[in-house]
Amino acid sequence: MSDNENQKQGRCGYVAIVGRPNVGKSTLLNHLLGQKISITSRKPQTTRQNTLGIKTEGEIQLIFVDTPGLHSNQDKAINRFMNRSAESAIRDVDVVVFVVDRTIWTEADEKVAEEIVRSKAPVIIALNKSDRLEKKSDLIPQLQNLSNRFPEAELIPLSALHGQNLKELEEAIIAHIPEGIHYYPEDQVTDRTQRYLVSEIVREKITRQLGAELPYEVAVEVEEFKYQGKICHISALILVERDGQKKIIIGEKGARLKKIGQQARMDMERLLESKVMLNLWVKVKRGWSDDDRALRSLGYDE
């Protein structure tokens, strides 16, 4: 059987999920897929690279692109990389889902809106966290603002976290998906490797543990990923930029690093459906977040 005969005919298209940092894009993707592939936290800049989430139901395959939030007024190499990733996704898709907060509009939202205007793709606006409104009338100023900016866009109030109105969002997306072959097997849910997903799990636990203390200059590099019998052995290096940051992550007598490792291992075992032996180290690598070569070595490439 040829490759073309293997590929299922139907409808297939790319959907960019865009918005300012920390507006709920990754949470929305995870709930649309019905499983977790993008890490989440309350801290901006949690997502750093475009991640594909693939949902196949019958003849329809939706390929969601979870993008980093677009940043303004930040000029480190890693911020430039994240902006390029998000901007490229907006240009090359069949539908753009613009996630905004139900009542808040910021300079960062403005930057995303400017990028979307350059895209030729149809736009669906997801007003996130709408379940938290005391009165529906509180939505009116934001709805008017968005209708003026995107007169042809469909506006859907929803809650990514609680799964409200996601069916309506999905139906609106499907209306714009073209006919074509499916690019991925129907059981595949992401383009990312297990090794990458494991590194992201560690980064999520660091982000959630440290909250406001966390420096942006944290990266995770998986140095070992191998199965021995029924156990997966994983060794990961946590990179920071200063000695003080290293101390924060390790914590008093190693307590914080131990807790990060315990939480990460539990998620890894769910992901891999296997027992995991996890070793974490923390290392200072000065200036990595503003060094293009260091970023490439850590997998931040185009």
Rank of each mutant, 00 (worst) to 15 (best):
T46N: 00
Y184Q: 07
A236E: 08
E134M: 13
D243R: 14
N165A: 09
H31A: 15
Q7K: 15
M82R: 05
T51R: 12
E107Y: 13
R132A: 15
N145F: 12
I140Q: 06
C12Q: 05
G254I: 08
K283H: 10
L33C: 04
I60S: 09
A86S: 05
I60D: 10
D292W: 10
F150C: 02
A16G: 01
N79I: 05
W288F: 05
G244C: 06
L143Q: 11
N165D: 07
G180D: 04
E204Q: 06
S72H: 11
E5P: 09
N4A: 14
E186W: 11
I260R: 03
S2T: 07
V117K: 15
H182T: 04
K205W: 06
Y14F: 11
I60W: 12
K275V: 09
V282A: 03
D292T: 11
S26D: 01
R42I: 12
K43N: 03
K55C: 02
V99G: 03
E171D: 13
P151G: 02
T190M: 05
E107D: 15
I60H: 11
L33V: 01
A294F: 03
V198Q: 04
K230S: 14
R256A: 01
S199Q: 01
L214A: 06
L155V: 08
E204W: 03
S85Q: 14
I37Y: 04
R286F: 13
G287A: 08
E57L: 11
K285Y: 11
D187Q: 11
P141R: 09
A236Q: 09
E224V: 09
L278R: 00
W281G: 09
V96Y: 00
P151K: 06
V202F: 06
V100N: 09
K36W: 09
K275N: 12
S274F: 10
H182C: 07
P151E: 00
K43Y: 02
I201H: 03
S41Y: 07
P185C: 08
I177A: 01
V220M: 01
D290H: 07
N83Y: 03
H31D: 14
G53N: 02
V222W: 10
A16R: 00
I238V: 09
L272E: 05
A113T: 03
A175I: 09
N165Y: 06
Q74K: 14
T193C: 05
L127D: 05
L272Y: 10
M268N: 05
K285E: 13
E57C: 10
K25N: 00
K226D: 10
P151Q: 08
E273N: 15
A108W: 14
D138R: 12
W105P: 08
T193K: 09
S159K: 06
G251N: 06
W105Y: 12
D66N: 05
S137N: 08
D131A: 05
V96P: 02
K136N: 10
K247Y: 14
R270C: 09
R242N: 08
A89E: 00
Q61A: 05
E273C: 13
P21M: 03
L139K: 02
Y184V: 04
H176A: 01
L158C: 07
A236D: 03
M1F: 15
A212N: 15
D301M: 11
Q45A: 01
E115D: 11
V93L: 01
K55I: 04
Q7D: 14
